[in-house]
Nucleic acid binder design. Structure first.
Ligand code: SF4
Ligand code: SF4
Lengths: 141, 141
DNA sequence: TGGATATTCTACCTCCAGGTGGGAAATGAG
DNA sequence: CTCATTTCCCACCTGGAGGTAGAATATCCA
């Protein structure tokens, strides 16, 4: 009952980058600031680039920058890019599909829970999470 | 956002066995009835035996039987036995712990979702799910 | 007393998430 | 031009989930 670690990484990175919408962040700076393994973070950033969430620039003054306003990027989009959303539609007994002919007592309850989490991820944006890192920077900058 | 496949298997098996509280089910009969890989199911049943959820008997008339009334066995106990409950307490940004000093906007929302699912698993018993298989048997017995 | 049927045990296998390492290629600063 | 800094790409490793194979052990029944 948790996101993939990589999804958590992605949300953490993008929330951090949402602080300064225009700044270019290098992998090494993100690694230092957020404690995510350097090499693995590089691969993740490449993935987020291909997903269109960030824009990459090589060379000395290169780095990554968010492509869209933080308020318009919702967590569901990040999760989808990293791990997909398949696991949000899954029978709690592991059946492929027993349709809704004779749903078991848990079918609806379980569906409500999944939908509730999904809705939360759809409504929460990077702007909401950015201030988390504002607070930290006040102390450590 | 789903349980481990093995947890789903376990819930499926135990719900099926909850039909007849006293009957001894062999691995092969459970395999045939529920479509769970035979060898893997054997290992799972051994695990459930060690967890005290079922009782094993060897020999010709052997098999597994539920140890307690289905109404008293709740799903949370099964999930705990199979995959543990660690993943139900986890920051959505993947941080170890930033405590509740300055929780981010998602901290409480995410906590509510986890607790809600946990409560569902605590309240749902095998008795509730047993009738799912009653219906099936009416058609195929 | 067998032999059939059951659980039990050990050892492997495959796949994938997470992680590491060594470079190649681009690009701005000097 | 040169070089440092950056993204990019490759191959590899590890641990655990899910699955498979083969035999050892217990037990009832005929
Ligand atoms: S009715 Fe129950 S068993 Fe069937 S798909 Fe829904 S949750 Fe699964
Ligand atoms: S406040 Fe936010 S970042 Fe901190 S533990 Fe809670 S969810 Fe994670």
């Amino acid at each position: 009952m948790r996101l993939l670690k990589t999804s958590e990484y992605a949300i953490r990175v993008l929330s951090h980058m949402a602080r300064n919408e225009a700044e270019r962040y290098s992998v090494s700076s993100l690694h230092r600031a957020l404690g995510i393994p350097y090499k693995y973070l590089g691969r993740l950033m490449r993935k987020l680039t291909k997903a269109g969430l960030v824009d990459a620039a090589r060379g000395k003054t290169g780095g990554y920058v968010i492509t869209r306003p933080p308020g318009s990027i919702h967590l569901i989009e990040i999760v989808e890019a990293v791990e997909g959303l398949e696991d949000f539609d899954h029978c709690i007994l592991g059946f492929e599909a027993c349709s809704s002919d004779q749903p078991c007592p848990l079918h609806d309850q379980w569906g409500v829970q999944r939908d509730s989490i999904r809705r939360m991820l759809e409504e929460a944006s990077l702007e909401d999470l950015a201030l988390k890192f504002e607070e930290e920077s006040e102390a450590s900058d």
